[in-house]
């Protein structure tokens, strides 16, 4: 496919979020994605990292977070992207990681909803030697005015 992957070694500092966004955005732009697809992917990664800092490391700074970005096999809609986010923090029970009811208008709890909305696939798993890994995948989607959150279809696997 010819698209070399990207690895980011971050720490659990909110000031690192911009670095992550810029790195992911530049890499995805390099595979030719449209701006709306790039924006969604960057948003999902930011939300996932925010959750790691807030819930996995409970606000502790300086803790490691590894982000790996890879291209997926080409489809008629374009090259897909897989992102893995690995932390070594507290393992939040998997059944607690879920988006909340959006009818309940209040601050907080929107990150997982955003991830599920903009990604074709997302899965958290606990790692036996500690921490959690989130795997997310997405293929390009047609831009739909006012409806960018609609899932595009089943997971590629």
């Amino acid at each position: 496919m010819g698209h070399a992957g990207l690895k980011l070694e971050l720490t659990s500092d909110p000031g690192q979020l911009q670095k992550a966004r810029e790195g992911i955005e530049a890499w995805i732009r390099g595979i030719g994605w449209a701006p709306h697809d790039i924006a969604d992917m960057v948003l999902a990664v930011d939300e996932a990292l925010t959750n790691v800092i807030r819930h996995g490391y409970q606000g502790a700074t300086g803790q490691p977070i590894y982000v790996t970005v890879d291209a997926l096999a080409d489809r008629p809609t374009g090259v897909g992207v897989q992102i893995r986010i690995r932390d070594f923090g507290r393992q939040v029970p998997l059944d607690k990681i879920c988006g909340r009811d959006l009818e309940d208008i209040r601050p907080g709890g929107l990150g997982v909803h955003i991830i599920k909305s903009v990604m074709d696939f997302s899965e958290y798993r606990h790692i036996s030697d500690g921490g959690t890994e989130l795997v997310m995948r997405r293929y390009p989607r047609p831009k739909q005015e006012g409806d960018q959150a609609k899932p595009a279809g089943p997971d590629p696997e």
Partner: peptide, 8 residues
């Protein structure tokens, strides 16, 4: 778009 995704 973020406001739309969250239906806010």
């Amino acid at each position: 778009s973020v406001f739309e995704i969250t239906k806010l």
